[in-house]
Simulated scan of single mutants.
Amino acid sequence: MQSDDFLQRAHDPRDPNPWLALYLDGSTPLPDPVKSAWLHDLASPSRQYLLPFVRPLARLMIILIQILKTILPKRWSASKTLHRLLVWGLKGFVSPEANWLILRHFHLGAQIIEFIERNAPVSVALSPLKPLTIDDLGDELFLKHDLNLFNFVIRLNQQLRAEGKTLAAVQDVDFSMISEPPLALDAMPQRALNFIDLQTAIEIFTPVYQLFLTDNDFWRAANSLQLDETMGVYAATILNTPQHLLLLNNKHPLVPMSTLGAGYRLVLHGLSSEMLHCLLSEMKQAQQAAASAVQADQPAAQPA
């Protein structure tokens, strides 16, 4: 389903299409291709008919695995096996839109972290993750993504404390790292079995993630989602735009939530990242347009 599919649909006031309403609504900042892919995924039969059965079973599995973890050695894990299973599942059964959004998420997360670091008054080391194919995720990228986020928050604030500085609004904001990821929806697997939507896939993968990681790794991954608020505060401070925190709703980082809702909150995490990246992209375009206008208004240099 492409953007034009929504726009070409006839509107019946007695039976309005909810997906058309959400596509046309501009209160949630998303690029049209992303919003189209997101809504196509939401409207899929998989999400409508499969998710209601998968979600309670997945949450039951989380409880049972938690009990199992009390018996297994504390440090037992098989991260490489986990990531091989995730890659196999994504390539074999997950929809093209969901795979595209998952790969995009790594790029957007890396760009948002770099945006904050570049506009902070201190400098810290970064480890950007920008997979170009699903196979690239096999290098333990899901686990590394969570580690990156916590490591960045720790390193940034350690350096701010060491230098006696704080994040503050920046007058000339650096948006140079913000760009569209070089990923094509058409390049995603599109076989007959690639039908599972994003939310259902995440609910299925969450207990698998829990089983193959240590209790500490899984707990940290689940609670990294609440750092959406933290990253949002950092970006809003730099931009001096607190209104951009409006649609963040992954709860307070100082009140850890149960891991049972990790799948649902992971979807919110992805959407929050997409919206923040879209806002940064719009600001970058506005900054470039303003700079071009100033340059156009300047008189041409007179010949000597």
Rank of each mutant, 00 (worst) to 15 (best):
Q2E: 14
D4W: 05
Q8W: 03
A10K: 11
H11W: 11
D12W: 02
L20D: 07
A21Y: 04
S27F: 09
D32W: 01
P33Y: 02
W38G: 00
H40Q: 05
L42F: 04
L50D: 09
P73H: 07
W76C: 02
L85E: 01
L86D: 00
F93Y: 00
E97W: 08
W100Q: 01
H105F: 06
H107N: 12
L108M: 10
L108A: 02
I116R: 08
N119H: 07
P128Q: 08
I134D: 00
G138D: 01
F142V: 02
H145L: 04
D146Y: 03
N148S: 13
N151R: 15
I154P: 02
Q158W: 06
A162S: 13
A162P: 03
E180M: 07
L183Q: 04
M188E: 00
F195I: 09
Q199D: 14
T206A: 15
V208E: 09
N216A: 14
F218P: 04
N223M: 13
N223E: 14
E229C: 11
E229D: 10
G232F: 03
A236P: 02
P242I: 11
L245T: 12
K251S: 15
P253L: 05
G261K: 05
L266S: 09
V267C: 09
A289Q: 15
A291G: 05
A291M: 07
Q295S: 12
A296H: 01
